[in-house]
Computed example of a mutant assay.
Amino acid sequence: MRILHILNHVREIGNGIVNVAVDLACLQAKNNHDVAVVSAGGEYEKLLLKYGVRHFELDQTRTPINLINAAGRYRGIIREFQPDIVHAHMMTGVVFGRCLKANSNYALVATVHNEFQRSAVLMGLADRVIAVSNAVAKSMARRGIPEQKLRVISNGTLGSVRTRNIQEYLPVELEKPAIATVAGMYQRKGIGELIAAFAQIAPNFPQAHLYLVGDGPDRAIFEEKAQATGFSDVCNGLHQRIHFVGFQPEPQRYLLAADIFVLASHRDPSPLVVPEAREAGCAIIATNVDGIPEALDNGQAGILVPVKDSSALADALAKLLSQPHLLQHWQEQAQQNLDWLSVERVNQETLAVYSELKMGWDSGVVKHLEVNINTNQ
Rank of each mutant, 00 (worst) to 15 (best):
N376G: 14
V112W: 00
L47E: 09
V213C: 13
A280Q: 08
Q300V: 01
H87C: 00
H9W: 15
Q148Y: 15
G97C: 03
R188M: 15
L272R: 13
G190I: 08
I153F: 05
F231Q: 14
P171R: 02
Q331G: 05
E115L: 09
G144S: 08
D23V: 02
Q323T: 15
R267F: 13
N347E: 07
F231N: 13
R118Y: 02
P206D: 12
Y74A: 14
G246P: 07
M123N: 13
H113A: 11
V213R: 01
A202N: 05
Q248L: 08
V289D: 00
H239E: 12
G192Q: 11
T111K: 06
L326F: 07
Q331I: 01
R188I: 15
F261A: 10
T287E: 03
L341C: 02
L158K: 07
A141L: 10
E370A: 11
A29K: 01
A318H: 10
R278W: 08
Y211W: 01
R219L: 15
V273T: 07
G190N: 01
K308G: 10
A277N: 09
M359P: 04
M90Q: 12
G42L: 09
L357D: 06
E349M: 12
I77Q: 11
V22N: 04
P83H: 11
Q335P: 00
D84P: 10
I221H: 12
N103R: 06
G97P: 02
H113I: 15
D339E: 10
F96M: 09
W340A: 15
C99K: 14
F116A: 09
